[in-house]
Simulated assay, not measured.
Amino acid sequence: MTDLPDLLERTAARTPVGPPPLDALRAGAERRRRRRTATLSGAAAAAVGTVISAATLLAPAPQPTPAAPPPTRLVGIGHAAIAVPADWPRNRSICGTPQQDTVQIDDSSMVLECLAGRPQDVDSVQVSGSPTVGFQADETLVIDGARAERQRTTCYDSSVGSRVCAGAVGIPALGVWFRAESSTSAEHVDRLLSRIRIVPDQAGVPSPWSVTGPPTGALAGGYVPLLSDAGLKAQVKQVKSPSYPSGTLLGVSPAAGTMLPLGATVTLTVAK
């Protein structure tokens, strides 16, 4: 029997021995390194993509910038005023019926008797120194410390077909009443009447209609005290007018209802 050590020695003697295959070893190692690098790069890219996707899902959607509210101006009598859109004109009405969004103060067309239709989607505010027609106090409230009376908003079908909603607020102690009307909705009326405020450092130019006088018009002598009571000053401008007696008040500037700082001057055009 041949011993195992002798068999190994003879086998080794017959096996040719050469230099180790270094190039092949290096090439195999390089292939394995590239495979590991590619695998790691793919995993890293997948991880980054996952993070970006998650961030995109979690980020809040951009919100639209809210539109700025339209500018307003104050109109009123004395220290009570209401904010109306700044671009509303005055007295755009036919026989007292507004034909577009408007504020009504000393609207001369109200004395005319006719059935003028109110177009759709027209809002208006009437400011007066006496209770508006049909005013009744359904509730009381306080506006900036002043007691006010509110006539609730109601809607009705007018005789010319449009549906009109109306409501009113009066402040008896300050001698001013506000009536809002809308052929859009009752909400428009309530929104308008919610903008009434008391402005201690300003005063509205009084209405000449609040002064009684001869049939030709109010007399300036009865109007000047109203300006003084409101904290405003009078400047008289006399003009020749053969149609009116001397002392008749022909106009005021700024117009009635304009809010002015206390001590401001109002120009009275008076017939001489």
Rank of each mutant, 00 (worst) to 15 (best):
L262D: 05
A67G: 11
V103Y: 08
L74T: 00
P85D: 01
G42I: 10
V122C: 04
R34P: 03
G78H: 00
L262G: 02
A27K: 08
V236S: 12
S162H: 10
T248H: 13
I196G: 01
R26V: 13
T2P: 13
A46I: 07
T56E: 14
T39I: 14
R191K: 12
P261I: 11
R147I: 08
A55W: 07
A137P: 01
R34C: 04
V169W: 03
L262M: 10
G161K: 12
I77V: 12
G217L: 04
D106G: 06
N91K: 06
L8H: 09
S93P: 06
E149D: 09
P131I: 01
V84Y: 03
V266W: 02
A38W: 13
S124I: 00
T132R: 05
V17H: 10
P64R: 04
A255E: 13
S241P: 01
L7V: 08
S109C: 05
L226R: 02
T140H: 12
G213Q: 06
V125K: 01
G251W: 01
Q120L: 15
A46M: 11
R197G: 04
K237Y: 12
V270Y: 00
R31F: 11
A180H: 02
V122A: 04
W209V: 09
T39Q: 15
I143P: 00
I77K: 05
V51D: 06
V236T: 13
G145Y: 10
C155M: 11
D106E: 12
A24N: 14
I77P: 00
T39N: 14
T72I: 04
A255C: 07
I171Y: 00
V111D: 12
S210G: 14
A218K: 06
A61C: 07
A271I: 00
S124R: 00
V48K: 03
E113G: 14
T72Y: 05
A264V: 07
V125N: 00
V169P: 02
A61Q: 14
V51M: 07
T39H: 12
P242Q: 08
L4K: 09
T267N: 08
P98Q: 06
A68D: 11
G251A: 09
C114H: 06
A59G: 12
A13V: 07
R163G: 00
T56Y: 15
I77L: 15
S207F: 04
D121M: 10
H79D: 09
A220N: 03
S162M: 13
L227D: 01
P172R: 05
V169S: 02
G28A: 14
P60K: 07
T265S: 15
V84N: 01
S124C: 05
D138S: 07
V176I: 06
Q63K: 12
A230T: 02
W177T: 01
V176T: 09
I105F: 03
S185W: 06
G167D: 01
C95R: 05
T15D: 07
G78V: 00
A230Q: 05
E139G: 12
Q136N: 14
A54R: 08
V133Q: 15
V133M: 13
L115P: 02
V48S: 04
P245V: 08
G221H: 11
G204D: 06
E9H: 11
A29L: 15
A38E: 14
G170C: 02
V199L: 10
W209N: 15
S128W: 07
